[in-house]
Design a protein around this nucleic acid. Structure first.
Lengths: 233, 233
DNA sequence: TACCCAACTCAACGCCGTTGTCCTAGGGTG
DNA sequence: CACCCTAGGACAACGGCGTTGAGTTGGGTA
């Protein structure tokens, strides 16, 4: 046996269909994995189910990816590309940063399982580098001095990734756990007595509606406000 | 059989030791779980290993917790409790929020593996409820109207948890992967040509130093600045 | 002391990722 | 065209996982 089971894409030459007549490829497997996650939830992505969805034996996936982690990294890389696809700078730094942040957030929300793995890794690949360059460019053109631009860039990126991972995690939960998390705000907090928890009791109705949504858009607006206040005249 | 296997803590009366002579309790199980995660990583937390570490049969854990998810929520709440331990309001809302945020961040950093599992769950338990009450109290006493207090609370909490999880993930990485992530900024980004990536090239020296630290303290300061600007006079 | 039942152990189920082995059909070569 | 090589399939099995139903035991109570 060879020490490496998986073969990089460019070196593949033989194209042999599975028993069910499907011609496999890295792209097809990644797309099918993304489809599985989107259609049947995060827990649907197992090698066995992926094999079934592909019309191939589960072990065949290991001819293309070293492990499920390797596969998920490939899926994550695809996500970064989709988030940036088609973005153009407008010249309005606030609008540009807002758009980039919301795009990152939306792309990760669309594929929560992959987002959970991807959000806290620095890849240094093409798509990521392009995003860094774009954000830094927006800040420097806006007039922030370099040290300030770097600090704001850092806060902006990590806040976006942090919220993306947090919100993705909520979506990636099994249905039962997700329902339980939602119920907490209605069942548990809403019933706390005004004597022991006056502030929760006073705002319970506001909390139950606000906590359903992501806190990211408002947090992003706060960050942009604070940044604007620091912009030299 | 009863429809509920797990029994809440206060109702337990019989104390029967395991074969290996250990007296189990909710507290002992949670502490052991935290120890397991801290010593051997998040993947070390399985019911079977937990049983072995406790000196009991794995299935015994289900007499105390409905599922591993239930156990995980208990672990998460314990972390929140440790973060809040000993905190007292000073009356200065900015100082109070800053202290709470940094405490949460620090508590999660102290148990990175557990933080990764716990940061994105709503437990609805004692410690979490106390933290929610404390933060809402600080904001309402500061003079924020209820709808604004709730929105800021949401942004503040999720920002803290998001950064906590992000930074915990970096600490939880295997040494090799962590080193590789750091190297990206020096090796990959620092070498990008000024022609294709002028903004990265111009700030490379600032980036490599800034990205070593957590972006949370600065992001927290931005959030507090923006909140202060919204405070009614 | 004797009984009850809470709290333990034991055994099994159906998943999971992963790997060693075998097989077979496509591409390259003469 | 016929042959060979091997990439890329299929298959079966391994160990570990969460979880559950049934069996056992030993403290607490009357």
């Amino acid at each position: 046996m060879s020490s490496e089971r998986a073969v990089p894409a460019p070196q593949r030459r033989r194209r042999r269909p599975t028993k069910q007549g499907v011609l496999l490829s890295h792209e097809l497997i990644v797309d099918t994995a993304l489809r599985l996650i989107g259609q049947h939830g995060a827990e649907a992505l197992t090698v066995r189910r992926l094999g079934a969805a592909l019309g191939a034996d589960p072990s065949t996936v290991y001819r293309y990816f070293r492990s499920t982690d390797d596969l998920l990294l490939a899926v994550a890389d695809e996500l970064i590309g989709r988030a940036q696809h088609g973005w153009r700078a407008t010249g309005d730094w606030r609008a540009d940063l807002r758009a980039i942040g919301l795009r990152i957030h939306a792309a990760y929300q669309a594929h929560p399982q992959a987002a959970l793995l991807a959000a806290h890794r620095t890849t240094g690949r093409e798509h990521e580098t392009a995003a860094v360059e774009a954000i830094l460019g927006v800040l420097r053109r806006a007039g922030f001095p370099d040290p300030e631009a770097v600090r704001i860039y850092h806060a902006f990126v990590d806040q976006s990734l942090g919220f993306a991972a947090l919100d993705a995690a909520a979506l990636a939960l099994p249905a039962a756990a997700a329902h339980a998390d939602l119920q907490v705000w209605q069942a548990s907090y809403a019933r706390r007595g005004a004597d022991t928890h006056p502030h929760i009791a006073a705002t319970a109705h506001l909390l139950t509606t606000d906590m359903r949504r992501s806190g990211y858009p408002f947090a992003l607006e706060l960050l942009l406000d604070a940044a604007a206040a620091r912009l030299p005249a």
